[in-house]
Design a protein around this nucleic acid. Structure first.
Lengths: 277, 277
DNA sequence: CCGGTTGGTTCCATTATTTGAAACTTAGTC
DNA sequence: GACTAAGTTTCAAATAATGGAACCAACCGG
């Protein structure tokens, strides 16, 4: 097992590169190459990808050819670089519309945003990472990390912890392995033990807090969206800043957020089969 | 050559299903399956995909397994359905940020939207279709994947025609083959000849109009974003309604739009290599 | 309780594709 | 004009994909 050396400014994609693909045949490897390009986060040269040492020259070359021909990558002949292709944007549009909670939750997010005047996040779990699928900005917006399509860590965000608390044992175990427990701020829970204790508290309370654990000055109150079986299928949060409000004030809104989470969950269960139109 | 029978409510993805993938080996076929799921636009059963008659049972089954395992599809065990997976959303976010004009154009779109008070579209060409990569609504801000990522026809939209007019001969020929020339409104140019004449006029004028050719009451003025070589790499449009304004009034803003298009083009050329950070 | 049907899953010998070391071709560089 | 780095092509061996057929499990009507 040769350990892969990650580039310095690797973008956290929640997917170790050159590792996941193996075992799923050619398709898995090709998608892995796609992740490598995504992970570097910019247009890349053939040699840069080659230097990652995941695939031999000829193999990597053929994958890039295929992916480019398929529109999953685009090739810039002037600079000899590859970037992610537009076909992905098209596919993601469909993915967003059909696989996520976003379309169902849309009107509820609007409602919640109007009521609270704060930033609202809707997230789903993706291999131990938090994937933000929709967002409403506060009336007075503050630049923050999250955006639709972005991923973030689970162990130090409100939505992440809310979902972790309601995962199956196996899913939780797998997710925990993927947490970096990097100490983003002095408040970050940086050990599995501390996190487990917090998750237990969340299960009792029914909602999670972010006490400036990811970004200084940013606090939130998050609620899981639960399936009938009691498993987290997503999470909803109301986010603000310490300058503007307090955790207690945010918690006061938790009841309302739970109501809305319940309604989204309900619609999700029933809406799986849209009419044949 | 067996002709594929398209389902009744097939969603235009700009990619004929079960046709493009062949010829690019296993990877192409797998991505083709992905397009099939995207094309149906909802969670689908194994048998529905099988009924499309593109792949034999066992083969299709294995593709679905692989794609699901890879997170490109998600499987709902309760209903036995497959939907596009969240990994696509994650990849697309990166794609949007790195391969499209959107991040560069962002501040300019804001500027243009503020100045004109009208709807602004930023589009790129994708296999003969128009792919909208960003948008500023007259009133409400864009939810990324809800709007960006949409595709539309090229022959009857302002941005589409603006780009077609500045495509290389081969690219234009390939794009023309993919136009349906469906008559959306009485004003739609519904023959290749009419379109060619219009494209010539656009080249003279330097900008394109949409004279209610796609949707009744909707008009726009579009400008191509040109590479140094004079090829269209995207297009920018100011859209409004006949109820609110006239084509002449929109044309009056064309000069300003061209300035901005030129600035976006300039930044694109120089910005291909972000610093190594 | 049974024979039939539909929908999904697994087997496995055949076939076709992928693989990757090495050879080759540019395009710089000194 | 030799030297180097970056990208491209070749080809026999290794491997993975293929898909017909068999299998399994609900469900259904009698």
């Amino acid at each position: 097992m040769s350990r892969i050396i990650y580039p310095v400014n690797w973008i956290e994609t929640g997917r170790p590169m050159g590792a996941e693909g193996h075992g799923d045949g050619t398709v898995g490897k090709a998608l892995d190459v796609l992740d490598m390009v995504a992970g570097l986060g910019r247009a890349v040269r053939f040699s840069e990808l080659l230097a990652l040492g995941v695939y031999p020259k000829a193999t990597l070359y053929r994958f890039l050819q295929t992916l480019t021909h398929q529109g999953m990558l685009s090739y810039d002949p002037d600079h000899g670089t590859y970037a992610l292709g537009v076909r992905l944007v098209r596919l993601a549009h469909a993915a967003w519309a059909q696989s996520s909670l976003a379309p169902i939750a849309r009107p509820y997010l609007d409602e919640l945003a109007a009521e609270t005047g704060e930033t609202i996040h809707l997230a789903q779990m993706d291999l131990g990472q938090v994937l933000y699928v929709d967002k409403r900005n506060a009336t007075r917006p503050v630049e923050m990390f999250a955006q639709a399509g972005k991923v973030g860590p689970a162990y130090c965000t409100g939505v992440g912890k809310a979902m972790l608390a309601y995962l199956s044992d196996e899913a939780l175990a797998r997710a925990l392995e993927r947490q970096s427990f990097h100490r983003h701020t002095p408040h970050t829970l940086d050990t599995p033990a501390a996190l487990m204790a917090e998750l237990a508290a969340i299960r009792v309370r029914g909602h999670a807090f972010d006490r400036e654990e990811h970004e200084p000055g940013i606090i939130c109150c998050a609620v899981p969206i639960l399936s009938r079986a009691g498993r987290a299928i997503g999470a909803l949060s109301v986010t603000s800043t310490t300058a503007r409000t307090t955790l207690d004030a945010l918690e006061a809104k938790a009841g309302r957020v739970k109501e809305i989470a319940a309604r989204i969950a309900e619609e999700t269960e029933s809406w799986r089969f849209p009419e044949q139109g």
